[in-house]
Design a protein around this nucleic acid. Structure first.
Length: 588
RNA sequence: GCGCCUGUAGCUCAGCGGAUAGAGCAACGGUUUCCGGUACCGUGUGUCGGAGGUUCGAUUCCUUUCAGGCGCGCCA
């Protein structure tokens, strides 16, 4: 279905044409003075130059054309040239009726569906997920869901950090601790044991220990680099160890992402594209893009007009090993070959922007990525604590995601059991559902590109612009609908009538804007705009709820209309939070 | 040094060229014949960091300046 704003614009276009003006000035936007009108058109002021006429005269000419309109109940020309518009209640009710008959809730699919790969994981194997991975997961998952809801084919890739020095470090540290392991015996030719010589817990301790030591102990670091190179060259024992690390890590990561309700279609990683690198580099050398500099192979990516010197892309280090950049370019190569995406979107910490500028330029310049393929980078800001500094544990360490989720759920549980309506056996499950809404909504309601303050108190509050507040509103609506049906009513057959009061009309107007809000948020890759929409919708619901006692209403037709409205609003809210990436409990 | 991002109410944030710059929190005061009061309604607060410019009109676009954060070839 078309957006109400479009339908209104079309109606206004006719009026502009009939009055002898160019219809392109007839753009309708939401009013920024809700006390004066519901919608407005500023086209008369923009048309001033074209027609060399006072804007107010143009607005008046148009307003005359709208007398007796089915769509507008008011079209008023106001100085200096605003056109103030109110919607016809009956027209609005008709729109909402169609919307509720539509399984898609009037959401208009994109005209030309595209294939979009969203790269939004980036966790390293052998390292637990920490708060740094939270934003990528939450924002990326939301963009994926928005895209799918609007008709694009979206492929989510976790893109594991499963190659490179970090693996070399683990191997080196393990060698240090358990030198007798068969994996280190270069003469061994038999099968390696099925059981890993470590647990995920061991790995999580080994890696930071090795990483710390490599920063102080140069000889140790060199051994790790050596191990990395040998792994890349295919040393059997190391490869078998790597497989063990992968097996444990991926299972653990999947479990953690599951708790966040985040899923990936692809569990690809840096290791998957190593096979492309030799040929890829060779081709770049043959084509004259890559050249040797101080023993390393690099590609220039500076362009004319750059405000600053963009450093070249390094493909191979002087020791012949590949790098992060090399892997990312090879990943683009594979993605082009297998998926032919229309867009590849990276949801990554904004501090990596320069890296991606280099990767994108190099991939384009060398012909790895087609000209038509859009390459985008959505850099998100840092998640800070209440002190405005990067979020840490009380002890000052990096906070693990599990710990953070655990804290939030505990807090939610406390609040929920204070309310006696929830039976104990459900309380924990409910706390997890509401807790997830607190975390995700707290993140998504902030602009992705900016840093934000993660405030547990605020995010878990049932008051204000929070996830729990939205869920509470949904639960309340559900409660009414349930009681209505228990009393013998049938919500499905209820018919919507034109609004009578202000809070009722406001709620209907806001409900009708869902299509617009969702499309706008996706087009701008801005989940916070969808959040703002649902929050306003929830406010409108609560205001309406407070003014009208639906179940006690004696006018049956009016009551049924309200039930129909509540049913529709609830569907919209559930649809919207699903797009954001969380769900609502039955009670809370 | 160069570059990027940010600066809006006491705090956390919206505001994507238009009328009187808005929410939430916090503070204070109301609303209960109550479908879940974890709600609703009301009250107060702003040199939109500063200075120029473009425009009929600038928080929004441009220039400059101040403050903070971040990034700048052999880590990822």
């Amino acid at each position: 279905m078309q957006k109400i704003i479009q339908l209104m614009s079309e109606e206004l276009e006719k009026a502009f044409e009939n009055a002898g003006y160019d219809p392109r000035f007839a753009r309708v936007v939401a009013s920024n003075r809700p006390d004066l009108c519901e919608f407005q058109c500023n086209g008369a002021m923009a048309a001033k130059k074209t027609y060399k006429k006072a804007p107010i005269e143009i607005a008046k000419d148009v307003a005359v054309q709208l007398e007796g309109s089915d769509v507008f109940s008011k079209a008023e020309a106001v100085m200096p040239g605003f056109l103030n518009l109110d919607l016809q209640e009956s027209w609005l009710a008709e729109y909402l009726t169609k919307m509720s008959e539509d399984p898609e809730l009037a959401v208009q699919k994109v005209e030309n569906p595209r294939t979009v790969i969203v790269d939004y994981g980036g966790p390293n194997v052998a390292k637990p997920l920490h708060v740094g991975h939270l934003r990528a997961a939450i924002i990326g998952e939301c963009l994926k869901r928005m895209g799918r809801r609007l008709g694009d084919t979206v492929i989510g890739d976790v893109h594991l950090g499963d190659w490179g020095l970090q693996i070399g470090l683990i191997i080196t540290e393990l060698h240090e601790r358990q030198p007798d392991l068969v994996y280190f015996d270069e003469n061994y030719t038999g099968d390696y044991p099925e059981e890993a010589p470590f647990t995920i817990g061991d790995l999580e301790e080994i890696y930071p220990a090795a990483s710390a030591r490599s920063k102080e102990d140069e000889e140790y670091r060199n051994r790790a680099l050596q191990a990395t190179a040998e792994l890349q060259q295919g040393r059997r024992g190391y490869h078998a160890l790597w497989e063990q690390i992968m097996k444990l890590s991926v299972a653990d990561l999947k479990e953690n992402y599951r708790k966040l309700d985040v899923t990936f279609d692809l569990w690809k990683g840096e290791s998957d594209v190593q096979k492309y690198i030799p040929d890829m580099v060779k081709k770049m050398q043959d084509d004259g893009f890559a050249y040797e500099d101080q023993g390393a192979w690099i590609v220039d990516v500076a362009e004319e007009g750059d405000a600053k010197q963009i450093p070249p892309c390094m493909l191979l280090k002087s020791d012949g090993a590949s790098l992060y950049t090399t892997t990312d370019i090879a990943t683009l190569l594979e993605r082009e070959q297998i998926y032919h995406p229309d867009e590849v979107l990276y949801v990554v910490d904004k501090r990596q922007e320069l890296h991606f500028v280099q990767v994108f330029r190099c991939a384009r310049k060398t012909g790895i990525v087609r000209d038509e393929t859009e390459l985008n980078f959505l850099g998100f800001g840092t998640m800070n604590g209440k002190d405005g500094k990067p979020f840490k544990t009380r002890e000052g360490g990096v906070m693990r995601l599990e710990e953070l989720i655990g804290d939030i759920n505990k807090e939610m549980y406390k609040k929920i059991v204070e309310n006696r309506s929830v039976r104990d056996k459900d309380a924990e499950e409910t706390a997890a559902i509401v807790g997830l809404s607190a975390i995700k909504y707290g993140d998504l309601s902030n602009q992705a590109t900016k840093d934000y303050i993660f405030d547990v108190e605020r995010f878990t509050s049932f008051e204000g612009n929070t996830g729990p507040y939205l869920l509470y509103t949904i639960v309340r609506i559900r409660s009414i609908l349930e009681r209505y049906e228990e009393a013998g009513g049938n919500a499905e057959t209820c018919v919507l009538l034109p609004a009578e009061g202000k809070s009722e009309k406001d709620l209907m107007l806001q409900t009708a804007r869902y299509n617009e809000a969702l499309s706008g948020a996706y087009a701008d890759k801005a989940p916070h705009r969808l959040c703002a929409y649902i929050y306003e919708l929830a406010n409108d619901v609560n205001t309406f709820y407070h003014e009208h006692r639906i179940l006690a209403e004696e006018d049956t037709a009016r009551q049924q209309s309200w039930i129909a409205l509540m049913t529709l609003v609830r569907r919209v809210m559930l649809d919207a939070i699903d797009v954001l990436g969380f769900s609502a409990p039955e009670r809370m």
